[in-house]
């Protein structure tokens, strides 16, 4: 039963990847000025040089052939190379970037889940009070701040203005240090990016959680729980929160999947973290089609996979979803 579901998901994933790859391909070649030959050949190259470069890169072939070749190099022989840095293998570069993005997103996720639950539960428990309103105001502010702006402001504060004060002198230079190389430095250089990335999600999740909790607390089963003699805290955590988790888990699964798939692009660029998002950004800037294709495919795979995992998780946490018996 599960096997069939997974098989169907796999088929869907293949279809999604195909559609996206074709779209990316067509958009690239439809963009005026995006023709790689002129940029590869260099400034002021003569027509003869241009033609030679075009031939060397296979750019004089018809589009479907180029597409087929690219897909072959990407998925089958796995030796796809960059347009902008000839000879650079695309797939190892992407795989090298994955741990960076994972480090960033995992850490941020831990922070945002902890804070979102804390804030959401507090606000719901104290609903209507000044604390509730202040927390929700802060959460709204968090949601409204664009992550790239917040990142630059964080850099301004921690790297420039207050870099030499006790508060921030521990913040290392922008960049990523692998965990295996220096765990302490890995941690220190990720603290600020974690915080910046988490802020938007803390705001969003705490507001959603509070709304879900407040609604859940009006449900009949909560009244039953109270009638059983449970304390308000037990009612909120064991019953209301457990029910609100259903929405939260599906939101989290999708957000996490999108972030790991390259959605953390803005924060990676601002904080100089060489993750998949940064790769995507540079590929787009440089109009490096092989890299664009690889990062987009990677992102699509991850998002489809995340969707599937969320659906599976759903079955676990909501018994009602397991089908009528």
């Amino acid at each position: 039963m599960i096997f069939l579901v997974l098989l169907r998901r796999l088929a869907e994933m293949v279809f999604v990847l195909f559609s996206i790859s074709v779209l990316v391909f067509l958009i690239f070649f439809a963009t005026p000025g995006a023709d790689p030959a002129a940029r590869i050949a260099g400034r002021g190259a003569s027509p003869a040089t241009l033609a030679a470069v075009r031939h060397a890169f296979g750019l004089d072939q018809p589009l479907p052939v180029q597409y087929g070749l690219m897909m072959k190099h990407l998925f089958i022989t796995q030796d796809l190379t960059s347009f902008v840095n000839p000879g650079q293998l695309v797939i190892p570069a992407v795989l090298q970037a994955v741990p960076v993005t994972l480090s960033l997103v995992f850490g941020a996720a831990v922070i945002w889940l902890i804070f979102a639950v804390a804030i959401g539960v507090t606000a719901a428990a104290l609903r209507g009070s000044v604390i509730d309103r202040s927390l929700m105001f802060l959460a709204m502010a968090g949601v409204s701040m664009p992550v790239f702006w917040l990142g630059e402001v964080a850099n301004l504060i921690t790297q420039a203005r207050f870099h030499n004060t006790v508060l921030f002198s521990w913040v290392p230079a922008l960049g990523y240090v692998p965990l295996t190389q220096n765990p302490l430095l890995w941690f220190k250089s990720l603290v600020i990016p974690w915080t910046v990335l988490a802020v938007t999600y803390i705001g969003l999740y705490s507001r959603v959680l509070r709304a879900n909790l407040v609604e859940a607390l009006t449900e009949d089963y909560i009244r039953t729980a109270r009638a059983k003699g449970l304390s308000e805290r037990q009612v909120i955590f064991r019953h209301a929160l457990r029910m609100s988790l259903i929405t939260l888990v599906s939101m989290f699964g999708l957000d996490f999947g999108a972030l790991v798939g390259g959605g953390a692009l803005l924060i990676e660029v601002v904080c100089a973290l060489p993750g998949v998002g940064m790769l995507t950004y540079q590929a787009l800037q440089n109009l490096d089609l092989p890299f664009i294709m690889a990062t987009v495919m990677y992102g699509a795979i991850f998002i489809v996979a995340a969707n599937t995992v969320v659906d599976m998780l759903y079955l676990l946490i909501d018994p009602r979803a397991r089908g009528a018996r």
Partner: peptide
């Protein structure tokens, strides 16, 4: 290697134009 100026500067070397056609 299809140097960008192979066709404008370096083809002035004797034999350069021939090289352009069969690099």
């Amino acid at each position: 290697v299809n140097n960008p100026n192979a066709g404008s500067w370096y083809n002035n070397i004797v034999g350069g134009d021939k090289c352009l056609t069969a690099p």
